[in-house]
Amino acid sequence: MISIRDIAKECGVSVATVSKALNGHHDISAQTRETVCRKAAEMGYQPNSAARALKTNRTYNLGVLYEDPQHSGLGHEYFSRILESFRAQAEACGYDVTFINRNVGKRRSSYLEHCRYRGVDGVCVVCVNFLDPQVLELVQSELPVVTVDHMFNNRTSIVSDNVKGVQTLVNHVFGMGHRNIAFIHGERTAVTESRCASFYKTCYDLGLQVPDAYVREGAYHDCDSCERITAELLALPQRPTCIFFTDDVSALGGLAAIARAGLRVPEDISAVGYDGIPLAKMMIPSLTTYHQDTQAIGYWAADRLVSLIEHPKTTLPESILIPGSLLEGASVRRI
Rank of each mutant, 00 (worst) to 15 (best):
F79Q: 06
V265R: 02
N48L: 13
Q46S: 14
I335Q: 05
I28C: 03
D149I: 10
V97Y: 10
E10Y: 09
V272A: 05
A219G: 03
C115M: 05
D149V: 07
D212R: 02
V125A: 06
D303W: 08
L131E: 14
K106M: 14
G175R: 09
T32P: 03
I258L: 04
L326V: 09
P69D: 05
I284M: 14
D293E: 08
T35P: 01
L83D: 04
L74S: 03
G75K: 14
E67Y: 10
L252D: 01
G186P: 02
S270H: 02
L308T: 04
V139H: 01
R228I: 04
H291R: 13
V97W: 06
T156L: 04
V166S: 00
G298F: 06
C196A: 03
Y45C: 11
N57H: 15
Q209P: 00
G186A: 05
T147L: 09
F86K: 03
V332I: 12
E318S: 07
E10H: 14
A8V: 02
E227C: 08
A213K: 01
V145F: 07
V166R: 02
G218A: 02
E137H: 07
G186K: 01
P144V: 13
P278Y: 11
Y60D: 10
M151E: 12
L234D: 01
K39F: 06
L233E: 00
E193A: 11
Y274W: 11
S307L: 15
Y299K: 11
C203G: 01
C115G: 03
G218K: 03
